[in-house]
């Protein structure tokens, strides 16, 4: 493994204020040796993609519990594509019904972590799938 720290943007898109999961995951990634930037609440897809590029992150973690994921996640991927970004690993978490997962994976979300996921599983996934 290279000595360079993995940089992660943990983002809360949409209007949802439930950030317990996002913050707990952020803390776990930091404890696992990654550099973590947390966007705070109410981020638009545009703001998230901008921050990801500006901060030169390797990973974006999106968290939504409001049910708006089908509208917002594809939009994030669309904007990343438009910017020609293909080396950022995008993962997601929240209250996301299993039926929605195939569509989200199709647009490029690498993995969707539901309630009850052990933190280590997320850390491991990122460490083995990060693109650069």
């Amino acid at each position: 493994m290279s000595s360079k720290k993995i940089r992660v943007l943990v983002a809360k898109p949409g209007l949802d204020g439930h950030d317990r999961g996002a913050k707990v995951v952020a803390r776990a990634l930091r404890d696992a040796g990654m550099e973590v930037i947390y966007t705070g609440l109410r981020q638009t897809p545009e703001m998230i993609v901008r921050a990801a590029i500006d901060e030169a992150v390797d990973v974006i973690g999106l968290s939504i519990l409001s049910g708006a994921h089908n509208a917002i996640f594809p939009r994030v991927m669309e904007l990343l594509n438009a910017e020609g970004v293909d080396d950022i690993l995008v993962v997601a978490g929240g209250i996301i019904p299993e039926d929605d997962v195939p569509m989200l994976k199709e647009v490029g979300i690498a993995e969707v972590f539901g309630p009850g996921t052990p933190l280590q599983e997320i850390v491991d996934f990122i460490q083995s799938n990060v693109k650069k």
Partner: peptide
């Protein structure tokens, strides 16, 4: 829903995808 809770009408750009959800 969240737009109502944050004082946005349903046609606000930030309301997109959130109308009638929670």
């Amino acid at each position: 829903d969240l737009p109502t809770q944050i004082g946005y009408d349903s046609d606000h750009p930030l309301a997109q995808g959130e109308v009638g959800k929670v």
